[in-house]
Design a protein around this nucleic acid. Structure first.
Length: 671
DNA sequence: AAAATGTTGCTGTAT
DNA sequence: GCAACATTTT
């Protein structure tokens, strides 16, 4: 059994219909979800009747693992799963295939979705101002509209003109003109998906949410199946996910846990204010608060509270440390990213030399590549680490190459896979590939396709192309072998393409084969892998497997985690908030502030912030504005210890602020 | 004309 | 690590 305080126990053993638990950082949110699931299991609820939902794969996995440790004996622990909203929707489609024509479609990951949108856009798409519109922007607009259930105009206004005055006549005109141009493009993208049997991430939620709302029989069946729906990080629910949950209000029990101050997914359409109105919107629901922080020392919470107080928004939150006083957080002045990485990794080595663990330290960055210098320093100093967030194996070129052959076998309409697969072969480029695709993609059966490729009229087609596909097809029900066949057949080209890198890249397929082994078909493997591509990279010391490793993570992926020592990279003006955010208006800036708050509240004992001289200004934007908005402006001196070159100082060295016309780099000896 | 190779610049956070 | 663009080779 799990140790709980009075409030946590009340939540876990709640006997009413629906419950919302409002809980600040470190008050045991995840623990309460686990305790709730544990309580239900002990009461005899079958594990597959409980859906535990989260927004990131990592926290979903974390919950499942912790629950397995505490779960009572006599139950099948394999059936305990924590899942993302997306994988849950995929499961529902899988369980009730008759209600979903999209069942078995090829899921598009973010890169594929952009490729599909590029095809819909055509080259050189320009808006009414004759500016080139990027596929990324149109995709963001469409995604925002789907996730927030809003109109295309509202989405355009939010994504493209978020910082401008909504009521302005000129702005309205821009939006209207954009809408006229973009609407047909989006229609084309939607038609294209249907034609090619594609389903993107947003569709997975949208299809299931809509079908559940419409189809009473289905809703009955699904709510009977999932009696208890437990939602972690409720503040990150967007309107589409909320719509999905509403189908469960009548037949199931909702148990939601959240914290408005930790909402950092507004970019995905989340609105933390929905948790404020939870009890009004959901009938027969109650609210509970968890107040006491068990994680951090008071000094860490004082700084976190202060950051939140600077916001014009009111979060009605002041965390108090159950643990009492500790060490003061440090704000450390560094010259550049390399010094930053060096200081942090040296600190890790010192601690380990004194008998500490690698796993005591967590390094947080705003983006994945902000972690790269620290990663490099870990590699060169032989520090074991796990890196969360960022590109998974599936996004790396060699895996996509091999997967393309498997995808064609799974879904012969998959044009994006065809393009990639064909261009791997000698002498086939964009033009020849599209010629082949246009003929092959209309054929009804796999056999016809193969024979068409074998005797292709008007062009010499390498016989190895149909041979490869036929070989992969042999193992349709054994994805691990299918992958092996694909790698074998494609090896000569892959070796040529990746040259001396090939040996190290080839070892990735061994890892992937293990994953593939648990899937029953190629289609299933592709779907599961897109939904959970195991994005973490682990560095081991020698060949020894170790679970003691430094954690490198984005702030987003670190939500729900904690560590003794936390380092936060690049806490400079121009980074917090970033120049990009400043252009997006106040909402984005406030989200950025919450992001910082999430990062600060991960620390248990030691919190180290780095202020990096080199990134104090960027070439794009107005340094004054950055200075003005910097989240650590007017930081009261009693909250942090300022360190410059290891010495405690009263203040920072003067910010490096070049006058106009002056070189914007520090003195450098060119001799 | 099409493919292959080289270069530059840029990347938010997640599913 | 890759996409978009530029240049060289087939």
């Amino acid at each position: 059994m799990i140790q709980l305080n009075e409030q946590q126990r009340m939540a876990a053993e709640f006997e009413g219909k629906h419950l919302l638990v409002l809980a600040g950082a470190g008050t045991g949110k995840t623990g309460t979800i686990i305790a709730r699931a544990d309580y239900l299991l002990r009461k005899g609820v079958q594990p597959n009747r409980i859906a535990i939902l989260s927004f990131t794969r990592k926290s979903a996995r974390e919950i499942a693992e912790r629950l397995k440790l505490s779960a009572p004996g006599g139950i099948n622990k394999k059936e305990i799963t924590g899942r993302t909203f997306h994988s849950w929707c995929n499961e529902i489609m899988h369980l009730y295939p008759d209600h979903f024509p999209h069942h078995g479609y090829t899921p598009l990951d973010e890169d594929d979705r952009l490729s599909a949108m590029a095809l819909a856009l055509g080259k050189n798409f320009r808006d009414s101002k004759k500016e080139k519109v990027k596929k990324e922007v149109v995709t963001a607009i469409y995604s925002y509209a789907v996730n927030t259930l809003c109109s295309l105009s509202e989405a355009i206004l939010h994504v493209r003109y978020g910082n401008l005055e909504k009521e302005d006549e000129q702005v309205r005109q821009y939006v209207e003109e954009d809408r006229k141009l973009i609407a047909p493009v989006i229609k084309k993208y939607i038609d294209y998906k249907k034609e090619r049997r594609y389903i993107d991430y947003d569709d997975m939620l949208s299809v299931v949410a809509t079908q559940l709302e419409r189809d009473e029989a289905l809703r009955d069946a699904v709510t009977k199946r999932y009696r208890h729906v437990l939602v972690d990080e409720m503040q990150d629910t967007n309107p589409l996910q909320y719509k999905l949950l509403k189908s469960f209000v009548e037949g199931s029990h909702l148990f939601c846990v959240g914290d408005d101050a930790q909402s950092i997914y507004a970019f995905r359409g989340a609105d933390f204010r929905t948790i404020h109105s939870f009890t009004e919107i959901i009938p027969r629901s109650e609210k509970l608060k968890l107040l006491r922080n068990y994680r951090s020392t008071q000094e860490i919470l004082d700084l976190s509270n202060w950051v939140l107080e600077q916001s014009p928004l009111r979060y009605d939150k002041k965390l108090e440390a159950h643990r009492g006083k500790g060490e003061m957080p440090s704000l450390i002045h560094v010259e550049d990213d390399w010094e930053e990485a060096d200081l942090i990794t040296d600190g890790i080595l010192d601690r380990v030399a004194e008998g500490g663990r690698y796993a005591d330290t967590m390094v947080l960055g705003r983006s994945v590549w902000s972690l790269s210098k620290v990663e490099g320093a870990c590699l060169s100093k032989k520090i074991p680490y796990v890196k969360y967030g960022g590109t998974s194996l599936m996004q790396s070129a060699h895996v996509r190459d091999v997967a393309s052959a498997m995808r064609i076998v799974a879904n012969s309409y998959d044009e994006i896979a065809w393009i990639r697969f064909l261009q791997l072969w000698d002498g086939i480029g964009e033009i020849k590939a599209s010629r082949i695709i246009s003929r092959v993609i209309t054929l009804a059966t796999f056999a016809e396709m193969i024979s068409c490729l074998q005797q292709f009229e008007g062009m010499e087609v390498n016989a190895a192309i149909p041979a490869t596909l036929a070989a992969v097809r042999e193992y349709n029900d054994r994805p691990a072998q299918a992958m092996e066949a694909a790698v074998k057949a494609m090896q000569p080209m892959l070796e040529k393409k990746y040259r001396e890198e090939w040996t190290s890249r080839a070892s990735d397929f061994e890892v992937l084969r293990e994953v593939a082994r648990s899937s029953g078909s190629i289609t299933e493997f592709i779907t599961e892998y897109v939904l959970d591509p195991k994005a973490e990279t682990t560095f081991k010391i020698g060949t020894k497997e170790t679970d003691d490793a430094v954690v490198l993570s984005t702030i987003h992926s670190a939500k729900g985690l904690e560590a003794e020592i936390v380092h936060i990279l690049n806490l400079n003006p121009a980074s917090f908030p970033s120049s990009r955010t400043i252009l997006q208006g106040e909402g984005a800036i406030e989200e950025e502030r919450r992001c910082l708050y999430v990062a600060l509240t991960r620390a248990k004992n030691s919190l180290n912030l780095y202020r990096n001289v080199r990134s104090l200004h960027t070439q794009y934007s107005d340094a004054n504005r950055h200075e003005q908005l910097y989240f650590l402006n007017n930081l009261p001196p009693h909250l942090v210890k300022i360190l410059v070159n290891g010495q405690e100082k009263k203040d920072f060295p003067a910010p490096f602020n070049p006058k106009q016309g002056e070189a914007d780099f520090p003195d450098f000896d060119f001799g």
